[in-house]
Nucleic acid binder design. Structure first.
Lengths: 126, 126
DNA sequence: ATAGATGCAAAGAGTTTGCATAGGT
DNA sequence: ACCTATGCAAACTCTTTGCATCTAT
């Protein structure tokens, strides 16, 4: 999982790790471009793929056509997607006993919970 | 908002309504093609879009690059995705008080729960 | 000095659209 | 008869890949 320490790679990784929730590819490109203006989109695609293959980053899809990337290594968490501003937030609580919802005979080894609505900023400024 | 009653339209609608869980576009094309062999993929795309715009069908994405379509009008439910065979199943139970997981100030008006694992067929035939 | 990383542009894959024709009303 | 729906192929969009160059080691 080495790879060379290029400024592009560092910029992309920093952006993903500094985020408070999962980011879209365009957001990663936009934010990392501030640090490395020549950054090309193919490089972002390539690093996201490498980071996923290395198990350091995971893709989550909170809505249709809305793939976002977040570091693995975070505590178990879920997501809130604001339908007004489009931002995604991490939720650190988890409903208990959720695996018991499965039908008999079904083995559950993972689950995902996503809440949709308006974030605090958007709900206060209607 | 009706539209003409063509055999293509009927076939597509039947396939979606007869399914026990949300279907992928290719599955809809494949199943509806048995009834209408000349069916073109563009027609499936067009009907899915129309049905969604009319609020009769909804798209759900249970995993990355895995858009599936299901009728609205079903009771509130969630999904189980089998990682072995790729089939999606509806879950009719729902964890209570899930909206309370949101941070203070966040308004929740919808939620989605997805379980991942092995369905009963796949877990018994390991 | 060498081999991996980058950026560009071309190639793929998936989805949408334009258009002539078929078919529902 | 009219006018929408269909199927094909072209156009788009998003993602991946090839290649010459650059750069970290």
């Amino acid at each position: 999982m080495s790879g060379r320490r290029t400024i592009q790679r560092s910029a992309i990784i920093e952006v993903i790790y500094d985020a408070t929730g999962p980011l879209r590819l365009e957001e990663i490109l936009e934010l990392a471009s501030r640090k490395v203006p020549t950054l090309g989109i193919a490089t972002v695609y390539r690093h996201l793929k490498r980071l996923q293959d290395a198990g350091e980053v995971r893709a989550v899809e909170l809505d249709i056509n809305d793939v976002r990337y977040e570091p693995t290594g975070q505590d178990h968490h879920h997501h809130f997607l604001c339908r007004a501003c489009g931002d995604a937030f991490n939720i650190h609580e988890c409903p208990k006993g959720i695996a018991k919802l499965a039908l008999p005979g079904f083995e559950v080894d993972e689950h995902q919970v996503t809440l949709y609505g308006r974030c605090s900023d958007c709900s206060s400024s209607k």
